[in-house]
Amino acid sequence: MGMISAVLGRLSQAFLLLVAMSVIGFIGIHSVGNPVFNVVNIETATPEDIRGATIALGLDQPIWHQYVVFVDNVVRGNFGTSYIYHLPAFELLMSKLPATLELASIAMLIAAPLGTALGLVAGRRIGTLFDRTLLQASVSALSIPSFWLAMMLILVGALLTGWFPSGGRGTTAHLLGQDWSFLTANGLWHLVLPAMALAIPNIALIARLSRSGTIEVESLDFTRFCRAKGLSSRRILFRHTLPNISVPIVTIIGLQFGGMLAFAVVVESIFSWPGVGKLLIDSIQLLDRPVVMATLTFVAVAFVLLNALVDLFYAVLDPRVRLSS
């Protein structure tokens, strides 16, 4: 019962979010400029050309009508055709998705275990040199603007030392009908710097959270009781502390994974990584409305889905949610 209500609550919130997203995004994009001039040559176009293009793009209709058409299309998975690439926007988005997914996944695979472990160790040794160093380092890591961090990684890792390539996906291999970089050595080589750029702030964030969680859980009565009943401190750490701090950590991992999809905007543009984020920025600058809407809607959906997954994971993890019937 608790699970059903959690899922339903999340779904209703997701629905609201999507409606709001689509309205805001649609109106917002609409007010930015006239995309007609992207399809016709502004110098040579006759008024007839412009009118023809306007009608072809459906821009002559009242704005609410355009919205209804838009929503109707979206529901059928059709975001329209890119003004620039002349491809269906959704298809374009999907072709860029694997690059972003593999980048974010690898960054999170580095950040989550490393951050959790560092935080656990520091949380059990409050005030020691290790703890203080970690705290200072994490504040610093969280203070570095992500784009500058990426640039400095290029400067140090690529330009000065020549160890890693400064951009691009490298060689890709085919799997499940998509191209993946992580399947080839050269591709992995190209992944290192961008993945580090995404992972470093997340290591810091997760480490801080895991540290404060550890301190909190270890001060609770049941860990004291565990010691009183004769358990070894290792068992307390792995069987009691870790499961109990995993709830907030899983939350932040879920949220940050969604955040990575968004922050990929920065990292991908710097490393010329042909993913969703680079597509979004390029489309915003080129006023490619269908692609912008498809991308924003996609990121919002992905974010909501991740939130729902996190909620489900709570239920798996926490019997109080799972068994509250």
């Binding site: 979010l17 709001a20 805001i24 109106i27 007010s31 968004a262 905007v265 915003i284 990121v299 974010f303």
Partner: peptide, 21 residues
């Protein structure tokens, strides 16, 4: 508030600035 906080801040700022100019 929930709606907004369920999206990454950078995304909200991005949408806002794209909308506002």
């Amino acid at each position: 508030v929930d709606l907004q906080l369920s999206l990454p801040t950078i995304l909200v700022a991005l949408i806002a600035i794209v909308t506002l100019g």
